[in-house]
Simulated scan of single mutants.
Amino acid sequence: MSMILVQRFLMAFYIITQVNCQEMGKLNVIADMPSSLKESSGMATYNQKAVWVVEDSGNHDKIYKVDLSGDIKEELEVKNGKNHDWEDLTTDTNGNLYIGDFGNNTNKRKNLVIYKLPNPEKENGDKITAEKIEFNYPNQNKFPPKKSKLYFDAEAFFHWNGFLYVITKNRSRPYDGKTMLYRLPDKKGEYEATFIAEWTTCLEQDSCSITSADISSDGKTIALLSNGLIWLITDFNFENILEGNIQQIDLAVRSQLESICFLDDTTLLLSDERSNHEGGNLYQYTIQ
């Protein structure tokens, strides 16, 4: 048996033994996203009536409030927050909103930053001021590293109890399915992120690379998204999240799903980018 076949067998065995259950899922379309927001890359909620949305690189330095019918209700320009490559949104229990400007397709960036904003629901004008949480990865020494170690892109994070947890997107060639989990404080400053763990999702790059994340308000469920799959993590502790119970759900679609957030503790909202007259939808998924 060739080394490649041996590697694939071992990876498959790992996935079968580590992911406790795989199910087929169904997404319900609840709205078309606004046509002006073609590249929605992150979402967060404050209530069950609307989501706040950002777009990724090449788009405006703005956050948008979109109701669940798909209409833009408000937009705020982010002061002191350049959109280099905004990839995800999350909130904390004090109402602060965080923008993950850590998209890093080529693994060359040395200016990774998370922007911390006050609660946008309470802003009266058309601008909102950001603080910078700058960081680097402790295990990246080359910019870029060699092709087999392109582990330092990220499109996903969530907040819990004073910390931000960043989940990386794998761009290695050949693709090996590894994702890394890091933690850093939620306060303004410059930090070296703390490496927590690595995990092998699966081996198909298009559907196994993490594109968004969120945690339920009760702190009991973490949702990770890719272009077609969700992983739900439960029964974990925050020192070793990836040793929790991991359930993989196949959504039975393979669109460019880029955003996920909890509407409540058992309901997820997802969105995909619009491309070639496809996608651009707001979806709902109910956790069984």
Results as ranks from 00 to 15, higher is better:
Leu5Phe: 11
Gln7Phe: 14
Arg8Asn: 13
Leu10Thr: 00
Phe13Glu: 11
Ile16Gly: 06
Cys21Ile: 10
Leu27Cys: 04
Ile30Tyr: 12
Ile30His: 10
Glu39Leu: 12
Tyr46Arg: 08
Val54Gln: 03
Asp56Thr: 05
Ser57Ile: 00
Gly58Arg: 02
Asp61Lys: 03
Lys65His: 02
Val66Pro: 05
Lys73Tyr: 00
Lys79Leu: 14
Asn83Ile: 05
His84Asn: 13
Asp85Arg: 01
Leu89Lys: 05
Leu97Met: 09
Gly100Ser: 03
Asn104Val: 12
Asn104Pro: 02
Asn105Leu: 04
Asn107Phe: 12
Asn111Cys: 10
Leu112Gly: 06
Val113Asn: 03
Ile114Pro: 05
Leu117Gly: 03
Gly125Gln: 14
Ile128Val: 15
Ile128Tyr: 01
Glu131His: 13
Glu134Gly: 09
Gln140Arg: 10
Phe143Trp: 08
Pro144Ile: 08
Ser148Asp: 12
Phe152Trp: 14
Asn161Glu: 11
Ser172Arg: 05
Tyr175Pro: 15
Lys178His: 06
Lys187Gln: 14
Lys188Val: 05
Ala197Met: 09
Thr200Met: 15
Thr201Met: 15
Ile210Gln: 08
Thr211Tyr: 06
Ser216Gln: 08
Lys220Ser: 07
Thr221Ile: 09
Leu225Phe: 03
Ser226Ala: 13
Gly228Pro: 06
Ile246Thr: 12
Gln247Ile: 15
Gln247Arg: 10
Gln248Ile: 13
Ala252Ser: 01
Arg254Tyr: 07
Ser255Glu: 12
Gln256Gly: 02
Ile260Ala: 06
Ile260His: 00
Ile260Glu: 00
Cys261Ser: 11
Phe262Arg: 03
Thr266Lys: 10
Thr266Phe: 07
Leu269Met: 10
Leu270Tyr: 11
Asp272Trp: 11
Arg274Gly: 05
Ser275Trp: 07
Gly279Cys: 04
